[in-house]
Simulated scan of single mutants.
Amino acid sequence: MSEAKLREEIARFARSLFERGLTPGSSGNISVRLDDGGWLVTPTNASLGFLDPARISRLDADGRLVGGDAPTKEIPLHAALYETRGSARAIVHLHSTHSVAVSMLPEIDANNVLPPLTAYSVMRVGRTALVPYYRPGDPAVADAIRGLAGRYSAVLLANHGPVVAGDTLEAAVYATEELEETAKLHLLTRGLNPRLLSPAQVRDLVAHFKLEPWPEGEHGHDHDH
């Protein structure tokens, strides 16, 4: 896909996310990695609902701005995820309400934030890690992401929001939306002892769709239904 088309796609997806209330105000950012190693990334203090494709930031392979407006301050976050997730070609970071709410819960497992509630949460998102709170734009968050060693395509930043990588922009957007819906389901069913997918059902999804393994003992309730 040409760079001009990618710029249009970023603006189109970003507006859709904004208009559905998935990231308010000027929050959230999106990046796409280009074939030459550079990136397209949404500008700082820009609303995802009103992006001008021509003003989207263009960075070279060394992260230097070579065109467009100044980029989001979350560049270290994106860079660390690209560095450790070799297959990643796009990253979406939102401040979506339910995902942020889950990131604040005291009982969540930092290595596996959300249980396997639905097939699509396993298929599109997989396991989600929790990264401790850092000031937005703090370069230290990059070290925390690197510490995950590329094992996760979806990460929740505590008291901040989700960061999701995909092999295409479309895949990253859809996975981020699925994460938000799973977080919403988790909050709706919290304390109600919901029936989760069993380990056998998760293994079946992993095998059938050739997904990254979901380690045994991290599936939730081991029962059939």
Rank of each mutant, 00 (worst) to 15 (best):
S2C: 10
S2I: 09
S2T: 15
E3F: 03
A11G: 08
F13G: 00
A14V: 08
S16F: 00
S16N: 04
F18V: 03
E19C: 07
G21V: 01
G21S: 03
L22H: 08
S26R: 03
I30C: 05
I30H: 01
I30V: 13
R33N: 02
L40W: 04
T44G: 13
N45H: 14
N45Y: 13
A46R: 13
A46I: 11
S47C: 09
L48W: 07
F50Y: 08
R55I: 03
R55Y: 05
R58C: 12
D60S: 10
L65P: 05
V66N: 10
V66R: 14
A70S: 14
A70V: 14
P71K: 14
E74T: 08
E74I: 03
I75H: 09
Y82V: 01
E83R: 12
T84A: 05
R85N: 10
R85C: 04
R89S: 02
A90I: 04
A90H: 01
L94I: 10
L94T: 15
H95P: 02
S96H: 00
S99D: 03
V100H: 04
A101S: 15
M104A: 13
E107H: 13
P115A: 01
P116F: 03
P116R: 02
L117M: 14
T118N: 11
A119E: 11
Y120K: 05
M123D: 10
G126S: 10
A129S: 12
A129N: 12
V131I: 15
G137I: 09
G137D: 11
A142V: 03
R146G: 01
G147P: 14
L148Y: 05
L148D: 10
G150Q: 01
R151M: 08
R151Y: 06
V155C: 03
L157V: 09
A158C: 11
N159K: 08
N159S: 14
H160V: 10
H160C: 05
H160R: 09
G161I: 02
P162L: 11
P162M: 13
E170R: 12
A171D: 02
A171G: 03
V173N: 01
T176P: 00
E178R: 09
L179M: 14
E181Y: 07
K184F: 09
L185C: 07
G191E: 06
G191F: 02
G191T: 07
L196D: 04
L197I: 03
L197G: 06
S198H: 04
A200I: 14
R203A: 13
R203K: 15
D204V: 12
L205K: 13
V206C: 05
A207L: 10
K210Y: 06
W214Y: 05
E218I: 02
G220S: 06
H221K: 13
D224L: 15
